[in-house]
Design a protein around this nucleic acid. Structure first.
Lengths: 251, 251
DNA sequence: GTATCTGAAATCGTATACGATCCAGTCGGG
DNA sequence: CCCGACTGGATCGTATACGATTTCAGATAC
């Protein structure tokens, strides 16, 4: 009768909360508690948690439990680097079969991004940015690569609260680079050229973030470098609290 | 007391059998049966199966069960393409911090590969090939990328029996390309240059496979195009049988 | 001969139960 | 005062049990 199994239900339940920030990094995921909330038993919840672990969204220790993954600065760097790689490639692969309508939509979204520059809203900008890039690689014929891109974006979501990714002033350049990429695709540039342009676009953001960071807080402390010994993890009670601030513009 | 949990035990049990070919693609994985073999209950087995599903090694359908993933020709192409991408990048990233000892080992392994050419043993060649490439990217500083490379190799293992990947005569070129890559790294070439060389090395193999295939059996039928309706899946009894033949040289 | 129905067997999905493990706080010895 | 052993509570890990779903063989109708 039920369209989805309880383990899938549990997966979506937790996943949703990680994605939108209700479960912040470090939040402890207690099987029994989640099971009670969902009115299911612990077995499907456990299964869901293990899947999330396999995706890298939560960490897990035997007989101890799970928590939303805590990430370090280097983790952010590596994720972004990988995302630059696969997304650039996906964009290049898709460029061969992109439709005029997709190009039109991409231009339009980028135009909307440009218009937000005056009255800047990082949250909105990030949303549009995701939409823009999605359009560019949505006709990528290799589902493997697309899957890797999705993973990269998901990972970035978890990193949202790490406060590494906000760089004021980068947005304007970003819009210009978007325009450049569209231009390359329109004039039927070489796939490798498109790939590298898209990759550089992401790498530039990464560099900007790192530069901004080393400029503003030189010690550049890792967030939660030793999650087991020190305890920066919020307790079950204040999951909703620590979120809702600190938005970013990973453009 | 036990070093590993039963779910991990079950995971390794099945994984091992998929990797070495005892469970061929299409082999039906019955929870209760595996549980009895391992003398555990079905719960940890189920968990293991779902993890394997998340990795793409098995397919799963609700209330029906799991089987070792059946792959099509396009799947092989996409996997190889993705592997070319991430492995090339991993190699380039690692080239910056590669040690003289690693370079020496790589040269030595490639030399061993060259010596097998006269009395060609595809199995041995493939082993050495894996070792060669592993050395090149083992000092890659980005664990994400390395993880993607590992996934790619694992996926290729499942594709082993698909008979797409054997191309006589390609081995010699492969050894030469290996030498070229080492040369580039030694002379401190640009990272992008190394990346593209390593990528082309893989892409060339892919092209060779496709060419060989279209030349020898023009219809180019997909293996098991509709696993649900037609039933090419071997039954539990003959798991050990269909394997042990048909080795490949994915070089 | 083919198509459809039906019931039993096989298999899956999850609730429940209970032992195992970990953690934090307490107590006693040094 | 500090440190190690002890203990209670919380949580995890898995065996077992049972209902739900699928599959398939055999029977029946056409």
């Amino acid at each position: 009768m039920s369209a989805e199994s309880k383990s899938q239900q549990a997966y979506r339940f937790v996943r949703e909360r990680i994605d939108d920030g209700r479960y912040v990094p470090g939040y402890r995921l207690v099987l029994g508690q989640i099971a009670r909330e969902l009115d299911v038993s612990v077995v499907p919840v456990r299964e869901a948690i293990r899947l999330l672990e396999a995706e890298g969204l939560v960490t897990y220790e035997r007989n101890v439990g799970a928590q939303v993954a805590l990430v370090k600065e280097t983790e952010y760097l590596h994720t972004m680097q990988t995302l630059a790689l696969v997304e650039g490639y996906a964009t290049a692969l898709a460029s061969g079969s992109i439709t005029p309508d997709q190009l039109r939509r991409a231009r339009e979204v980028n135009e909307r991004m440009r218009r937000t520059l005056d009255d800047f809203d990082p949250h909105r900008f990030t949303e549009l940015n995701l939409e823009f890039h999605s359009i560019l690689f949505e006709s990528c014929p290799n589902p493997h690569v697309l899957d890797l891109v999705r993973r990269g974006w998901n990972r970035m979501k978890v990193l949202r609260d790490s406060s590494f990714s906000f760089v004021p002033g980068r947005a304007r350049e970003s819009v210009a680079e978007h325009a450049r990429i569209i231009e390359l695709i329109e004039q039927g540039a070489d796939e490798l050229e498109i790939e590298l342009a898209a990759r550089r676009h992401r790498t530039a953001t990464l560099d900007a973030v790192l530069a901004y960071q080393s400029e503003h807080k030189t010690p550049a402390t890792d967030a939660a470098s030793a999650p087991t010994t020190t305890e920066p993890a919020p307790e079950p009670g204040d999951a909703a609290a620590a979120s809702a601030s600190n938005l970013e513009a990973t453009a």
